[in-house]
Amino acid sequence: MAKYGMVIDLQKCAGCAACSIACKNENNVPDGIFWSHYITETRGEFPKITYTYISTLCNHCDVAPCVDACPVDPKAMYKQDDGITMHDEDSCIGCRACENACPYGVIYYNERGVAPFENWQSGEAAALTEKVGGTVIPYYNPDRAITYAGIRRENKVEKCTFCDHRVINGESPYCVVACPADARIFGDLDDPNSEISQLLSSNDSTVLLPEAGTQPNVYYIHRFDVKE
């Protein structure tokens, strides 16, 4: 069984957010929720300025605080054998313990009593979806429903799954495909010959919040701003 992880090459990353938009597209992610996102920071005093853009997503941690925190039995937030931290939307009770436990802020909650994609639920918007044959949204991607709720319900959390529905079909996560800079490398950390393993063995890498002890599986190499 593979153990999946990702390397993000910050030197290649151009800070364009194509990954994050493509993720919304692939996973039918509503407004206000970000499975793929970024942390940006402008440092220094004019004119000695640097800017960094760090792409973020679920780190699929080996020691996953979200899984520990999930009170449901069996757990709604759980680790798959392939290392993916997965979520069972059906058994999720919306307690948000995982969201609170995650040090990275990458788990999002669909408010109780508010239908996801609420503005698509009525009027001309709903008529459009019906006319073109979508589900809730006209550009609904049916692939997402292969392994997970196609669109998550109210009072449920949701987060990045490394596009597990694509991975089991032999495809890379959609952010990897959509990245114009080839900055994202996805693969098997347990395979020493995989591109990701090779990159990690030949480059210094960092993870976010190493002190949190979560043992993340999303690694960063190089620097975004060449002046850093």
Partner: peptide, 26 residues
């Protein structure tokens, strides 16, 4: 898919940009 447009990607046959996209095409 079934008459619905759901995604955009680069036409990789282009020698100008190959398979590379940009954010706003989506």
């Amino acid at each position: 898919v079934d008459g619905r447009a759901i995604k955009i990607r680069a036409n990789a046959g282009s020698k100008v940009h190959g398979g590379n996209d940009c954010p706003r095409a989506h």
